[in-house]
C-alpha cells in the first residue's frame, strides 16, 4: 500500500513535468496545426540558459529563493525570446506553404539544436552531460511511517508550479480576449484576420508562451535528474509529444491528463516490472490508445478541412 502511494506520488511528479512540455505542443498545434518537433530542443536550450545563470550566480546566491526565481525567470524569458526568433525566421516564411514543409523544418531545427549544442566551441556546451547545479536542495518534505513514503520538496514545488501554470493557461485560452483570438486563429487564421485579429502576433505570442513553459518544465526536469545534456530535449520532447497525442493533440486539459497518465504508467512499469521496459511500455500505451481512440482520449477525429 505504502509502495503504491509512493509510486503514485513519483508518477504524478514526473507527469506534471511532461504536462508542461505537452502543453507547448498542444498550443502550437492548436494555432498552427504544426507539430513543433523542435519544442523539446527549445526546452533544452532554456535549460542551458538556466544552467548558465545558476553558475553565474554562484553557489550561495543560486540556492536562495531569489536565486531560484532569477534562474527560472532568465530561462523562461530567454527561451520565450528564442521561441519567438524561431517562429519569426523559420516558420512564418512558410505560413502559406504546405504543412509538411513546416513540419520538416521543425525536424531540421530539432536536429540543428540537439547536435549543434554538442559542439565544443564558444559558448556551446559540448556533448557530454553536465551536472545541473543544485538550485533547490533536495529535502524530504514529508515522511510517512518508517520511510515508507517519502515526498521530496522538488516534487511538491514542481506539482504546484505545474498546476498553477495549467490553471492559468486554461483561463487564458477560455476566459480571455486573447484566448478567444487564439481559438479563432486555430480554426482559420485568414478569417481571424478579418476580425481585426493580428494573427502573426497571436501566433508569435503562442510560441513564446509555449517556449517559456518548456523552459520551466525543463528546469524542473533537470533538478529532478540533476543533469543536463544536449540530447535531453529529444528524449523529454518525444515523451511529452506522446502525452499530448494520448490526450488528443490541440486539447489543453487532454495534454495534462495524457501527461499524468504517461507519468504514472512509466512509474508503475519501473516500480513493478523493470526500468528497461519503461519506454517500450510508454510507446506501446500510445499505440493502444490510438487503436481504441484515434483522436486521443479527448480529441475528436475531425474531417480534414479542404
Amino acid at each position: 500500500m505504502a509502495q503504491l502511494l509512493q509510486h503514485l506520488i513519483n508518477g504524478l511528479a514526473s507527469g506534471t513535468i511532461y504536462a508542461l512540455v505537452a502543453l507547448g505542443y498542444t498550443m502550437v498545434y492548436g494555432v498552427l496545426k504544426l507539430i513543433n518537433f523542435a519544442h523539446g530542443d527549445v526546452m533544452m536550450v532554456g535549460v542551458y540558459m538556466g544552467y548558465a545563470t545558476a553558475f553565474a550566480l554562484g553557489r550561495e546566491a543560486r540556492a536562495s529563493l531569489l536565486g531560484v526565481a532569477v534562474v527560472f525567470a532568465v530561462a523562461m524569458l530567454g527561451c520565450a525570446l528564442f521561441g519567438f526568433l524561431i517562429e519569426r525566421f523559420a516558420y512564418r516564411p512558410l505560413r502559406e506553404k504546405p504543412r509538411l514543409t513546416a513540419l520538416i523544418t521543425a525536424i531540421g531545427i530539432s536536429f540543428a539544436l540537439s547536435y549543434g549544442f554538442q559542439l565544443d566551441i564558444g559558448f556551446l556546451p559540448g556533448a557530454s552531460p553536465r551536472a545541473f547545479p543544485e538550485i533547490i536542495t533536495p529535502t524530504e518534505w514529508l515522511i510517512i511511517g518508517d520511510r515508507d513514503v517519502v515526498v521530496w520538496n522538488w516534487q511538491v514545488i514542481s506539482l504546484l508550479i505545474a498546476v498553477g501554470l495549467m490553471v492559468g493557461l486554461q483561463y487564458l485560452v477560455f476566459g480571455t480576449r486573447f484566448g478567444r483570438a487564439m481559438r479563432a486563429v486555430s480554426w482559420d487564421h485568414r478569417v481571424a484576420a478579418l476580425m481585426g485579429i493580428p494573427t502573426d502576433r497571436v501566433i508569435a505570442l503562442t510560441f513564446m508562451l509555449s517556449s517559456a513553459l518548456a523552459a520551466g518544465a525543463g528546469l524542473l526536469y533537470a533538478i529532478k535528474d540533476t543533469s543536463v545534456s544536449p540530447l535531453m530535449g529529444l528524449y523529454v520532447g518525444l515523451k511529452a509529444f506522446v502525452a499530448a497525442v494520448i490526450g488528443g493533440i490541440g486539447h489543453v486539459p487532454g495534454a495534462v491528463v495524457g501527461a499524468l497518465v504517461l507519468g504514472l504508467v512509466e512509474e508503475f512499469v519501473v516500480g513493478y516490472a523493470a526500468s528497461t521496459w519503461r519506454d517500450a511500455v510508454a510507446f506501446g500505451f500510445l499505440i493502444l490508445v490510438l487503436l481504441v481512440k484515434p483522436g486521443g482520449l479527448f480529441g475528436r477525429v475531425a474531417a480534414e478541412k479542404v
Binding site: R180, A181, R183, A184, W187, D188, V191, A192, L194, G196
Partner: peptide, 22 residues
C-alpha cells in the same frame, strides 16, 4: 467571406464578440 467563415468551435456569442474584437 466566401463560405461564411464562422468559427464553428466557438459559441454564437463568442463569434459575435470577435466581430467587435478591436
Amino acid at each position: 467571406p466566401e463560405g461564411r467563415g464562422i468559427f464553428p468551435n466557438l459559441s454564437v456569442l463568442e463569434n459575435l464578440e470577435l466581430g467587435a474584437y478591436l
